Simulated scan of single mutants.
Amino acid sequence: MKKICFMLIAVMAYGMLSAQFAGIQNNEEQPLPAGFKPASTNTFLSQYPAINGDTRQATFRVVAPYAQNVTLQLSGKHPMTKDDKGVWWYTTDPLVVGFHYYAILIDSVPVMDRGSQAYFGSNWESAGIEVPEGREGDYYRFNKDIPHGEIRSLYHWSEINGLERHINVYVPAEYEKNPKKKYPVLYLVHGWGEDENGWSVQGHLANIMDGLIAGGKAVPMIIVMPSGDIKTNSDVRKASGDITDILIKDLIPYIDKTFRTYTDRDHRAMAGLSRGCAQTWNAVLNNMDKFAWMGGFSGSGRFGPNPFNPKAPVTTVETAYNGAFKDAEAFNKKMKLLFISIGTAEGQGAKQTYETLKDHGIKNLVYHESQGTAHEWLTWRRALNDFAPRLFR
């Protein structure tokens, strides 16, 4: 009997401690600071990270009672402070609005914050936090009062890659209501370290396009979001092939066979951000029989020495991309739009490219700047919001 009583007491004590620890983990032990609310990027019911929309400050908390050091990695490294319950805290200075990846370093080991949803960035499942804009950010938020398109998750076979490849495809709200109507297509590529889900998740592409189309600002279009990487699996262990070849020989034929598309160059565009911008320039300028519209966000073409390959020939505006720009008049007749966008905190490289092309006589050029933003998703949302309405007009 004594043994049973002891076991019951032990179980009850363990349950109380477990409940108390669970309460700490689930952020239940105290209310949020005044003016703060859970970030929109949090997991279900997670109160932290918490955002103050007025001050643009964020408060982070980590339950790690046995850790010696905990550091927030968000635009630099910030040591967190431990309280008497084993909970670590840090409140930031005012942050730049938009989406930011972050990590938690527990005794120097980077881990994901379990309070955040997972976002694939920098080649791993990373935590992320959205610092909200005011009403100027409504264009990428869900609008319950307008028709909504769909993001379709599909796989296609790539002979070049030797396996199935995942893509996301946006179709406008009217697609199923007009069974005989054909649509132009935009191929939209992510940047290095991210994947084909970036534009639909971090970029809020569907919300942006739904709003533009509903407002009559953009032509209804299909948008294909592929991976910019050569994939591998247990059978295909070594990456091989070329992204441009996969696009031209595998993906475009699949899209034209699967969806109701116009198949001529005048109804096909391509754009990308960062590394995806470089992939866009290579693909479009070497296949101008396939595309009549192109855009680059946070990047542009390169003329001069190649910083990534010092042994490569130095190019000029006339020799780069197999001489695509050499005859400016011929280029102008083929390319209906060359859109170059950059965040003002990213430097002047893109503007220099724009000026070089303009001075060379290239027309149908548009230079766009995102004020106050750097190499981040808010820059690219703004770029898409300006780029898409210009297409297929």
Rank of each mutant, 00 (worst) to 15 (best):
R141E: 15
R141W: 15
R141C: 11
F142K: 09
F142N: 06
N143W: 12
N143H: 14
N143F: 14
K144S: 12
D145L: 14
P147N: 14
P147M: 15
E150N: 06
I151G: 02
R152G: 01
S153Q: 09
S153A: 08
Y155W: 09
Y155F: 09
H156P: 04
E159W: 11
E159T: 14
I160G: 06
I160A: 12
N161G: 10
G162V: 08
L163K: 12
E164D: 13
E164R: 07
R165V: 07
H166G: 00
H166R: 05
I167V: 13
N168F: 00
V169K: 01
V169H: 00
V169D: 01
P172S: 11
E174G: 11
E174Q: 13
E176A: 12
K177S: 12
P179I: 12
K180E: 15
K180M: 11
K181W: 13
K181L: 10
K182M: 10
Y183L: 02
P184Q: 07
V185K: 05
L186N: 01
L186F: 01
Y187N: 02
L188K: 06
L188T: 04
H190M: 08
W192F: 10
W192E: 10
W192K: 07
G193S: 09
G193A: 07
G193L: 05
E194Y: 09
G198Y: 00
G198E: 05
W199K: 03
V201Q: 07
V201M: 06
V201I: 12
V201H: 06
G203R: 00
G203S: 07
H204V: 07
H204F: 03
A206G: 05
N207I: 14
D210T: 06
L212Y: 01
L212H: 04
L212S: 10
G216W: 14
K217F: 15
V219W: 02
I222T: 04
V224D: 06
V224W: 00
M225N: 03
P226G: 03
P226M: 03
P226E: 03
S227L: 04
S227K: 04
S227M: 06
G228V: 03
D229S: 08
K231V: 14
T232I: 12
T232P: 01
D235E: 15
V236W: 05
R237H: 14
R237Q: 15
K238P: 06
K238F: 07
A239V: 13
A239G: 12
S240L: 08
D242N: 13
D242Y: 05
I243F: 05
I243W: 01
D245V: 10
I246Q: 03
I248E: 06
K249F: 06
D250S: 11
L251D: 03
I252P: 02
P253L: 11
P253Y: 15
I255K: 00
D256P: 04
K257P: 01
T258P: 00
R260M: 06
R260Q: 08
T263R: 03
R265V: 04
R265I: 03
R265P: 02
R265S: 08
R265C: 03
H267Q: 13
A269L: 07
A271D: 02
A271M: 04
G272T: 03
L273V: 14
L273F: 14
L273P: 05
S274G: 06
